[in-house]
Write a protein that binds this DNA or RNA. Structure first.
Lengths: 359, 359
DNA sequence: TTGAAAGCGATACCAA
DNA sequence: TTGGTATCGCTTTCAA
């Protein structure tokens, strides 16, 4: 024991080199190296380690010392402890994006990825937090425990004003909802799905249709989109004297066949089928039932999927647009820097009818 | 000032009720309440607060005290600080699931969600960490900073053995890859995409085809799947004397039309089109070019999408199966509890040909 | 140029 | 039954 400096604690006595050697063998789980271990191995103080590894500009450290520290860190496989760091700092750069609880389209996924990427470029750590299972305020509490600097929550009604309060009190500088609804106290990136319905209805009216069916997926989780889309169709069509009828449809051939079999009695001459997938399903079923599309009935989807163009007749659709993730990332950044600003509301979703051969 | 106990620091002087009141006004950002604040308001020690809020069983706290503490916590909107807690505890229950860097199918998404849900039931905190942009060992370091108890990484080659070492040294009890490749030192949930190719090839050979084209998507990011699928076709077809030809295809009508235009000169009589979407695209293009399917050429997809059944002829496909997320969650849990266990390798992906009318 | 020490928030041991 | 206090890993001010 004579060679071991007195101040070292028993646990730290074991010299780091042999710790490292033992890491391969699965015996005792090698203790996770801390900055103190690095300091010891490099023969400097913890402060110096911190200075070197963080490239502190306020202090000048000699080049040989820097090298010794870097080598020691490398040898030990030292990785700083994010929690300890942000605890000390009093803040983090974590942006929490609770993952959407419903299946989302490619457009949204793309936007989501872009946003994530842009935030990372602004030096935020983006973390997706699966919120499935927990609900509402409970979820907000769980998020708040992580002390994110900003929260990008789905604007689908999960988050309540109370939830926003909880998050803000826990130190979140910005709470932003992303979806069809807005929430008191939070910024909103509003993707108003009614626009999609309105757009589809306008096109169908334009084609002279007077009885519009609106497909409402039977699968759970789609209400956040399907309800406002239906409302949008109503808002645009009913004032113009058209009839609007919601139609339940399950995503399977049988359900589509049933709907198609009753089609003629419904007296409808058009259908907005929620999205391209349901539209393709229904279009095929109608054709199989002998209903002429677009002669007897117009069929319209949404999402502008490539696959819709492969059908005959080619599927008319609603193309949606989202702004670049970059812009939204900047909004988040602004909100973080100036938490006192009033909640901003941005309408994001652009929609445009793409007439093809099915209407 | 007379009414304020001497021991309170200046910052804490402001009484909590008025802090709360000020939270609505956006003046000074109300300080985030800590357990000390709760203790002060309830007139107890921080220790007691901790006991009450964590339902500690080793200590008995009187009911009135419990109530006072709970009310104080409620009034302040207190939420515990996860980082501080896990720092003290020396471990967390965080499972990191770096989000897949490529677009994935519905099957995988479903599996992913199920796994996430099952882990949460086992009391883990599941966090998805977007790894886009950072690469390889750099990413592993970023993950390690969060000190997750387990990491579920995409098994697509991003993670290196070095990365695994970094994670383990940072205290991760289990590192599990999820994808086509395995990595030294980590458990593997192997989804060997060659199986899919083999399965498709077997079916096509069965149908008497001797020249098999294999679509390789031109879009970036698909290599991790397309390369092993091609290899699988080769492995199954070439020993049987069939010819295998890779075919680049972009996901657009033009690219498909080009490929179809050159079809007859290729002399192929079958194509495995990567997945149903590419298959549908190509099938339509072949038909438009006057190629008879399945007479002249068989077309096969993968994923068993509903939409594939809507085409005429109905698309033959490869249906894939993944085990329940529950089982995998249990595997992760086992690995966490017994970090010394040897890396397990599980083959996950089941594949089965679904013959329909296009082959 | 480097080191000592305080402190971030929560917990658990030991006393009282 | 409750309170004081050391501790987790890291950063940063102040002194040397």
């Amino acid at each position: 024991m004579a060679h071991i400096p007195e101040q070292q604690s028993v646990r730290r006595d074991a010299d780091s080199a042999s710790d490292l050697a033992r890491a391969g063998a699965r015996q005792s789980p090698a203790p996770v190296p801390t900055s103190a271990d690095v300091a010891r191995l490099a023969g400097v103080s913890r402060a110096t380690v911190s200075y070197v590894l963080n490239n502190a500009t306020s202090v000048r450290i000699s080049e040989p010392t820097r090298r010794r520290v870097r080598e020691a860190a490398d040898e030990l496989g030292y990785v700083p402890h994010a929690a300890a760091r942000s605890l000390r700092a009093g803040h983090s750069r974590m942006v929490l994006m609770p993952a959407p609880s419903m299946p989302v389209g490619a457009l949204y996924r793309h936007f989501f990825n872009e946003l994530q990427w842009a935030l990372r470029r602004l030096d935020y750590t983006v973390v997706q937090f699966g919120s499935l299972g927990t609900s509402g305020d409970e979820a907000a509490r769980a998020w708040a425990e992580l002390r994110p600097v900003a929260v990008l929550a789905p604007g689908d009604g999960t988050l309540t004003p109370r939830g926003v309060q909880v998050l803000k009190r826990s130190g979140a500088k910005a709470v932003v909802t992303l979806g069809p609804q807005r929430v008191e106290g939070a910024h909103a990136l509003l993707m108003d799905q009614r626009t999609v319905g309105r757009c589809a209805a306008a096109h169908l009216l334009d084609r002279g249709r007077g009885g519009i069916g609106v497909v409402v997926p039977r699968e759970p989780g789609f209400e956040t989109f399907s309800v406002p889309r239906l409302a949008g169709v109503r808002a645009a069509a009913e004032p113009a004297g058209a009839r609007v009828v919601p139609l339940e449809l399950g995503y399977n051939e049988q359900s589509a066949a049933q709907l198609a079999a009753r089609w003629r009695e419904s007296g409808l001459d058009a259908v907005f089928a929620y999205n391209d997938e349901y539209a393709m399903l229904l279009l095929r079923a109608l054709q199989d039932a002998g209903v002429d599309v677009p002669g007897e009935t117009a069929v319209m989807g949404a999402d502008d999927l490539l696959l819709g163009r492969l059908l005959r007749p080619r599927l008319s659709t609603v193309r949606m647009e989202l702004p670049s993730g970059q812009r939204l990332a900047e909004l988040v950044d602004r909100a973080v820097r100036d938490p006192s600003g009033d909640p901003e509301v941005h309408r994001l979703l652009g929609a445009e009818a793409v007439p093809r051969d099915s209407t």
